[in-house]
């Protein structure tokens, strides 16, 4: 089974270290940092190259600071990315 490859970018400076994304990740790709960000929180980081871009981490993130990328043809967004909508 060809594994879908994914990636996440986390705005670590806005992370409050709630840990929920780490718990929610089915691939155990994320872990909490050992160091603190400027706010004084530990923050979530992508540590293992097992991410499939499933978006679970982003869905449970109360700060909405995770952007998810995915490789391959079967891109099934949980939500269409807005294009050209004036916001």
């Amino acid at each position: 089974m060809a594994k879908i490859r994914g990636h996440v970018i986390i705005k670590t400076e806005e992370c409050k270290g709630c840990d929920l994304c780490v718990i929610e990740c089915p691939q155990d790709s994320l872990e909490m940092s050992k160091s603190l960000n400027q706010k004084g929180y530990t923050f979530s980081i992508l540590s293992y190259d097992t991410c499939t871009g499933c978006t679970n981490c982003a869905l449970v993130c109360p700060e909405a600071i995770i952007t998810v990328y995915r490789e391959g043809k079967k891109v099934k967004a949980t939500r269409p990315i807005s294009k050209g909508q004036s916001v």
Binding site: G17, C18, D19, A58, E63, A64, I66, V75, Q85
Partner: peptide
Amino acid sequence: MKEVWERTKLLHDAPNHYCPG
């Protein structure tokens, strides 16, 4: 890769004041 999830633009680009979690 393609971006499959991003923060909606209808949220202000500001951190919220809610407690962690």
